[in-house]
Amino acid sequence: MSEAVAQQIEEQEPVIDLSLADKIIDKYIDLPGNLMPVLQGVQDEYGYIPRVAADLIAERLNVYPSQIYGVLTFYAQFHLKPRGRFIIRVCVGTACHVQGAPRIVETFFDKLHIGHAETTPDLRYTFEKVACLGACGMAPLAMVNDSTYGSMTVQKVDEIINDYNQRPLK
């Protein structure tokens, strides 16, 4: 690994307490096919899979680091970068699109200064466009974590952001 790459990773991942990952690995170490539960557990713990944790998992489960990376990039559920405290999902499926979803998306982009699948530097928000959230009757639809916001408008975007800006990060 070049020094520049190493430094970059260090910058992204300031302090990772690997003992948390160790505990998760301990729990599943004897289970056949333990890679998925370990990865899911580690992601629950840190919010994403830090590289150092992936390396630790590779070492302790005796799986190639490359194979772990293959799994991590195959499943949409795994994230390799720190994620925001609040995940904003805006549906851009057919029904929502017709009802004006592109404008909702643009407004979020403008207000949060991030694009699709990006996270704000303060780790408050991650924004994602998604294909369908399965509630076309409420189109256009947005979700923040587990809360649903139907019949979205540009004004409601402001309200949502103002609301979540007040909430604690931890």
């Binding site: 590779a58 190639y64 490359s66 990376y69």
Partner: peptide, 28 residues
């Protein structure tokens, strides 16, 4: 690299049209 060399340097990453062969974390 897996079956004979047992080093496992390479893997398929991503899926669909995006799939490519890479090392862990796309390192060299």
């Amino acid at each position: 690299c897996d079956e004979i060399v047992s080093f496992g340097a390479l893997t398929f990453m991503d899926r669909g049209i995006e799939t490519k062969i890479a090392c862990e974390f796309e390192a060299p």
